[in-house]
Amino acid sequence: MTKQDLDGLRRLVSDACRVLAGRGLADGILGHISLRIDERTLLVRCRGPHERGLLYTQPDDIRLVDLDGATAALGELDGWAVPNELPLHTEILRTRPDVTCVVHAHPPAVVAADLSGLGIRPVVGAFDIPGTRLAARGVPVYPRGVLIRDRRLAAEMVAALGDRDAVVLRGHGLTSTGAGVPEAVLRALSVDAIARISLDVVKAGGTLTDLAEQDMCELPDRRLLQP
Rank of each mutant, 00 (worst) to 15 (best):
P97E: 07
D38G: 00
E156M: 05
G79C: 04
L74T: 10
R164K: 12
A166S: 09
R152N: 07
V124L: 13
G75Q: 03
E39M: 00
V168Q: 12
D163W: 08
L86G: 11
G31L: 05
P182A: 10
L6H: 06
A212R: 15
L88I: 11
E183Y: 01
G205V: 08
T100N: 11
Q58R: 12
L153E: 15
E213C: 01
V181H: 09
A16G: 13
A72Q: 12
V102D: 11
V202H: 00
R40P: 00
T57P: 04
E213T: 14
P220G: 03
E156I: 01
R18T: 15
A195Q: 03
D68H: 14
H50T: 09
R45T: 11
R164Q: 13
P59I: 01
L169G: 13
D27Q: 10
G119H: 05
G8K: 13
A105G: 03
R187W: 08
D200T: 10
V111P: 04
I62M: 01
D150S: 07
T90H: 12
A81W: 04
A204I: 01
D98K: 03
V191K: 08
S176V: 06
A135E: 12
A73D: 06
V103C: 01
L64Q: 02
R223S: 04
Q4N: 06
P140D: 06
E51H: 01
T57M: 01
G173K: 10
P59A: 04
R18M: 05
H104I: 02
L20S: 02
T100W: 02
C17T: 07
L30S: 15
L225I: 12
G180H: 15
E218L: 07
Y56H: 11
L224I: 00
D165L: 04
W80S: 06
D78G: 10
D78Y: 06
A155L: 06
R133L: 15
G125D: 15
R164H: 11
P59R: 04
L77G: 05
D27R: 14
L189D: 10
S198A: 10
A81F: 03
M1I: 04
V141M: 05
D68K: 14
L199A: 05
C17M: 14
R96L: 13
Q214G: 03
L147R: 06
A70M: 09
L43Q: 09
P87R: 08
P59Y: 04
D27S: 14
I194Q: 05
A212V: 14
L35A: 03
R121K: 07
G28K: 07
G117P: 01
L43I: 02
A204N: 09
G131Y: 08
D38C: 03
D27E: 15
E91P: 07
L153P: 13
P143V: 12
T71S: 14
L115Q: 12
G28W: 07
L169K: 08
